[in-house]
Design a protein around this nucleic acid. Structure first.
Lengths: 190, 190
DNA sequence: ACTATAGCGGAGGGGTGCCTCCGGTACCAA
DNA sequence: TTGGTACCGGAGGCACCCCTCCGCTATAGT
């Protein structure tokens, strides 16, 4: 029932009609996601097109500006994040929160890259952020009401903390999880 | 007595002899520090030269490659950080650690930018990192031995955590301090 | 099978940054 | 003051990326 009420978060980019065109569209989105995560916002669009196995012209037909491509990747991630929040709702309070934050970690790598060019608040970006906050806040409030999370910490503080931790460089995956656990320990009510 | 023993951390770049040349050298370093912090590693070298009020040729004479300039800025920051550690040594254990980490926050903004291009381990970079760790570890160990910091956390974990938190985007300075405090609370022994 | 057309892709012009090179400038020593 | 020279600085060649344009291709409907 929740998923039906979730606002659609539609972008003005629409998926093409023909089968081959849809394949290219999806390949471009995938390549863009990888490239932005790996090289930041300044990733070469020609590289992305090459990686997707299409011509540069095809990229520009689907995404007229760099910002359009960035938006498409970004909104896709946000949408998945909202769905993850719904799925986590069935877990116990603290586990639900940390499970969702784990998913956020995967998203934050992309977000960081996009933030670089999106920090002036576009209204579409604003809407996406609100959708994400709407999805995550209940999890956090529930953990607070259960006495598991500190009451004097805001959800915004928490998200920015996790977002920052994710963007840092680590020796391996294990260290990242360890560091995240240390920081989350600071959020826990004792 | 500590400062006499600290290894010199010299870079192969040397300050020119003539007075006007030294002025230019210093102006370039300052402009580079600002530019790398503001725009990341990909800041335009021509912008840096312009900002420093010198020609592009002068930049290249002092720093033949982009990496040389990056190194010069980086090693300068590291050196200051080592000095800050010595100064902090006179404070009580936990205060000394957090004071130094506060200083690290200022340095991390630069470091993040440099990390992007320096993640393959140059030996000179390795040396700088070791110098920094040598400076900070005693502060951390002292806090652990005083029972103020968790014994099951490593100094490397701590530094990467703070480094990541620093690089994140915040609404204002107050939020950054708040978030840092939350995360450090996770390091504290209760 | 056939055709109308949605969709493809890369050549190419414009822009920007990197780095070299060398004629000119200004410092410093005598 | 004057000469020797360390140093300056920007013009210019190169490489890369952005984005447009248009002749060609593959698809989907009949």
């Amino acid at each position: 029932m929740v998923s039906e009420n979730r606002p659609a978060l539609r972008v003005d980019v629409r998926r093409p009609q023909r089968a081959d065109a849809r394949r290219n569209f999806d390949a471009l989105l995938g390549a863009a996601r990888d490239a932005f995560a790996a090289k930041g916002v300044s990733a070469s669009l020609e590289d992305i097109a090459r990686q997707a196995g299409v011509g540069i012209g095809t990229l520009y037909r689907n995404f007229p500006t760099r910002q359009d491509l960035l938006n498409a990747v970004y909104f896709g991630e946000i949408e998945e994040l909202c769905i993850a929040a719904e799925e986590a709702a069935s877990l116990p309070p603290w586990e639900a929160l940390t499970a969702w934050l784990q998913r956020f970690v995967g998203y934050a790598a992309t977000k960081r890259a996009i933030w670089e060019s999106l920090n002036r608040e576009t209204d579409s970006f604003q809407a996406a952020r609100e959708a994400m906050y709407a999805a995550g806040t209940p999890l956090f409030v529930r953990a607070q009401e259960a006495g598991e999370a500190r009451a004097d910490v805001s959800f915004d503080d928490l998200l920015r903390m996790v977002s920052g931790l994710t963007a840092a460089g680590y020796v391996d995956q294990a260290q990242r999880d360890r560091v995240l656990a240390i920081a989350l320990n600071g959020v826990r009510a004792h």
